[in-house]
């Protein structure tokens, strides 16, 4: 029998995988992939809560997360194309113009 905890643990595992990607990726494109994984992990959690408490609010929030992810990809890819045209690389280490 699959309970709410199964889904929540799965969601946590997927979130941790995305976190590994965010920590260790140095390429902007790969970093954007990892953020997609993070958002999807949250979506699984929302849908599971929605089912096991019989409430539609979780699914509503999942829809808005999908919308946010779509617009994030559009803007992020545009910015990455501009950066690649100017610098010829997507490495994060090349973005230290402020020497922070």
């Amino acid at each position: 029998m699959i309970t709410l905890s199964h889904y929540l643990v799965l969601s946590a595992v997927l979130f941790a995988i995305g976190l590994v990607g965010v920590y260790r990726r140095k390429n902007l494109l790969m970093l954007l992939f990892s953020t997609e994984i993070l958002l999807n992990a949250a979506n699984v959690g929302f849908a599971a809560i929605s089912k096991f408490y019989g409430d539609l609010t979780g699914q509503m929030f999942a829809f808005f997360i999908v919308a946010v992810a779509a617009s994030e990809v559009a803007v992020g890819l545009g910015l990455m194309i501009v950066w690649y045209k100017r610098r010829g690389t997507l490495d994060i280490d090349s973005m230290q113009s402020m020497h922070g």
Binding site: Y7, A47, A69
Partner: peptide, 28 residues
């Protein structure tokens, strides 16, 4: 999880729109 509409939206938006956007973006 009985969220049929969310599943369909997931397929259409993520594997349809977002992945196509990535594929076109990767041409650059």
């Amino acid at each position: 999880l009985d969220a049929d509409f969310l599943g369909v939206v997931q397929i259409i938006v993520y594997t349809g729109a977002v992945m196509a956007l990535y594929a076109f973006g990767m041409m650059f």
